[in-house]
């Protein structure tokens, strides 16, 4: 399986501020009632974007900037801390990715969300608190300036500014080497898998 090497993402960015944004807010449970991921993109942040009266709310995902990103199928979402906490539903990163976002930058990411995103080839980089505030501010004031998320060199830049960024070394490796979907590697280990399984009594039903 040959996958794209994701060394950097350069695209327009959208700030979606707030800490502890959970997966129920990213994709409400009623949209989990499905047997495919198709069509999830349009429902990303649905209940944040649409009020109980069915009317659109003021939310970054309803902005013209979000629409540009959706049309380009390329974009950087700038989020807060502990983004994607809550459930393991891959529907959450799937909806963000299918909406058009191809990279995320935040303060920190919930682990399962981070793993799910990496496996989709969507890098999630972290910045220090102050740098993140600066980036978020920049993005809100300069919607036309592209943001570069440099996975290989661990930095994020926009306009004249560059910030030091971070991502787990294994995720960085997988992304820049085009190995972010681990299935090929895992299949390759088949003979070792048999050995490990053979050493486990409970796997043999004992």
């Amino acid at each position: 399986m040959s996958l794209a090497k994701i060394t950097q993402v350069k695209a327009l960015a959208l700030a979606v501020p707030g800490d502890d944004i959970d997966t129920d807010r990213i994709i409400p449970a009623r949209f989990l009632r499905c047997v495919t991921f198709d069509g999830l993109g349009e429902h990303a942040f649905r209940d944040e974007r649409t009020g109980p009266d069915g009317k659109e709310r003021a939310h970054p995902m309803n902005s013209a900037q979000a629409a540009r990103i959706a049309a380009a199928k390329q974009g950087v979402m700038v989020v807060g801390f502990n983004f994607g906490c809550g459930s393991s539903r891959e529907h959450a990163p799937q909806s963000i990715w299918r909406f058009g976002f191809t990279a995320l930058v935040g303060g920190s990411f919930a682990e399962i969300f981070f793993g799910n995103s990496t496996a989709l080839g969507v890098p999630c980089l972290t910045l220090s608190k102050d740098d993140l505030a600066e980036l978020s501010d920049f993005v809100q004031k300069n919607p036309d300036v592209e943001v570069t998320v440099d996975v290989e060199n661990l930095k994020v830049s926009a306009g004249a500014k560059t910030w030091k960024a971070d991502i787990a070394a294994s995720a960085r490796n997988s992304l820049i080497n085009g190995k972010w979907d681990p299935i090929a590697d895992l299949l390759e280990g088949a003979s070792d898998v048999a050995k490990t399984a053979g050493g486990l009594a409970y796997v043999a039903g004992k």
Binding site: D185, L186, T196
Partner: peptide
């Protein structure tokens, strides 16, 4: 543990 993967993770 099955083995070490090329990206440094564990299988």
């Amino acid at each position: 543990t099955v083995r070490q993967l090329p990206n440094g993770q564990t299988q």
